[in-house]
Design a protein around this nucleic acid. Structure first.
Lengths: 352, 352
DNA sequence: CTGAAAGCGCTTACAG
DNA sequence: CTGAAAGCGCTTACAG
């Protein structure tokens, strides 16, 4: 059974498609179409289960009520939580979302942007793997509003919804120092140009400096995002055995998870043998043993803001091309993965 | 700058749109268009950065190269992993995917199906919250191929990609029994009509029966999917204190996570005080302490199969409307969350 | 070898 | 109050 179209309704009723369209778009009164006719049209539309073909509508209107979402990896709960909130917010306004995972590959990302643009999306939300202004250029050419989430591109002024990476890393580092953990290894993830990583590294370094601890670059290691497990094992062995670190600060949830797995494998106790901290919290960290101290990012808010900033742009298209920069605060949650055994015992005594 | 269209190219070259379209769709040779002309067209298309408007193309062709994906909750790693694999597989064939989260609400799901159908998707992949054949009916009316993943609707013969829920639950239950854990509580999630839950419950019951243990329905509890935490606390207290259960088998990852959190809160030791098993594995279970024994579902394969079954349907549309039923095997991974303390010590001795 | 025309299903400016 | 017509950007059957 074919879908019913405007024409079907018009023919059965002996009226024009114009009239049917007007009525169904609730412009009947405005156009002074008689109540009786309106009712006839609406009744038949309902009876035939009519729903307008959105493709035709989009083509005509030049707006598809669809937005595109590109993230590094939709299966990472950080992104999928953002995605869910974007979806919810979008649905409220009648927008749909198409998603794609770029896997941190700028070329793939560029293709995806083209693809989405060709499909006529009204806007784009991207956690970009792009490095510089050249790549972002084609986005501008697309003439479609976009907002960059999670990461920004230095020197490119555009709509951003970010998180206070610097402060989060700074606070966490100070927390570790306050526990007398001075040899803090920092594990970052490739690609190294990511603004998130750069900001977190700065926060870490500044916290050390402000506390009079010299930064030891040998304690800062980058793990390739596409071979986390293998590199992590080597790196951890080196840091723990050769560098004698007391604590490890992992800069994203995948790193933390891989690190945890290995630390257990090495039979090291947390936090007695080694302290662990994570940037980006996942729910399991609340009830793993021990629970993991981490920096919580407001994933839900990122998603909601991202869509609403985008919607503003979509609606104002043409006029004020003012850029919105939003930096959301993060939260340090202290759980049980940090602090030496001794310190812990003392704390417990004080508590009682 | 407006996007360039076929017309732009045709006008600049002084040829017809027909010719340009033919050349760009690589039908130039077939239609015997001179190599020189073809080159001219292709060069200009490249220079103007031409990409066909997919909305127009879809409207004309009646196929959008887009599929819709509806799951209960895209932020659940079970679904987001499936989504990622669907996306990858779809991309290989030039398909895009739009996703939506139904939140287990059949009405919402019905609306989403309409929405997606109106957008002209070529097919649908759904982890449905529908209960019976009536609801699935409108899907059939949509005249668009679809495949149901994870869950099926009893009595409705259609394309399915499922997992061997019965066997997984059966095996896990036998595993617990083999550890001499006979009072096994089973925690299921609402809505209770879900085929996944029914099959897992059957597997559990049959395993008990086959081992001569009577099924105690008081040990089977359903937790509402939208208020897991609150109900879990009450339920767990009752089961552990009043019912004196030795082990708890959680039937999805959200239940397991919520359960773990509470068990820690109660200061119970796993597995010394209580054994824990999970249907559906998440990566954290590999390195939580203790590691969690669970039934692994082949999420990646579910996604890949789902898309490919759908693609078959899309391509054969009209001819053989044969239904494909795929049931993927699951895997029991024994880790450290089950077995009494005593038993464990004995095992360790035997091992040495 | 190439082009004029129809049509996918809508919406809207224009005319009466 | 209502309708004929144009047009969004494509593809394709038909004609020459």
């Amino acid at each position: 059974m074919k879908k019913t179209s405007l024409k079907d309704i018009a023919e059965q009723l002996g009226v024009s498609k114009t009239l049917v369209s007007l009525v169904l778009n609730n412009r009947g009164n405005e156009k002074g179409i008689s109540a009786a006719t309106q009712k006839k049209v609406k009744d038949l539309a309902k009876k035939l289960n009519y729903n307008p073909n959105q493709m035709a509508r989009s083509l005509r209107l030049g707006s598809s009520k669809t937005i595109g979402l590109i993230v590094a990896d939709i299966s990472n709960v950080f992104y999928s939580t953002i995605a869910k909130n974007i979806e919810e917010e979008a649905a409220k306004q009648g927008y749909n979302v198409m998603f794609m995972s770029s896997l941190e590959d700028p070329e793939k990302e560029a293709k995806m942007i083209r693809l989405l643009l060709d499909r006529g999306v009204d806007g784009l939300i991207i956690s970009t793997s792009f490095k510089g202004r050249d790549e972002i250029h084609q986005l501008r050419d697309g003439n479609v509003p976009f907002v960059l989430i999670d990461r920004y591109i230095p020197g490119v002024k555009t709509n951003n919804v970010l998180v206070d990476n610097y402060q989060g890393a700074f606070d966490m580092t100070e927390h570790l120092l306050s526990l007398d953990l001075k040899r803090i290894a920092l594990l970052t993830i490739s690609p190294s140009h990511l603004s998130t990583m750069k900001q977190r590294i700065s926060g870490y370094k500044d916290a050390l400096r402000e506390n009079g601890i010299p930064v030891n670059n040998k304690l800062i290691r980058e793990i390739p995002h596409d071979s986390i497990c293998e590199s992590m094992e080597r790196t951890l062995q080196e840091l723990i055995i050769k560098k004698n670190v007391q604590s490890i600060f992992f800069l994203n949830n995948n790193l933390t998870k891989a690190g945890l797995e290995l630390i257990h494998k090495f039979n090291l106790r947390i936090p007695q043998d080694i302290s662990i901290a994570s940037f980006d919290d996942i729910d399991m960290f609340r009830f793993s043993y021990p629970t993991i101290t981490s920096v919580i990012q407001p994933k839900e808010e990122i998603g909601r803001y991202a869509f609403n900033v985008l919607l503003n742009r979509i609606k104002n298209i043409g006029n004020s091309i003012e850029k919105q920069q939003i930096v959301l605060p993060v939260k340090l949650v202290i759980r049980n993965s940090c602090g030496s055994f001794l310190k812990k015992v003392m704390n417990d005594l004080v508590m009682e």
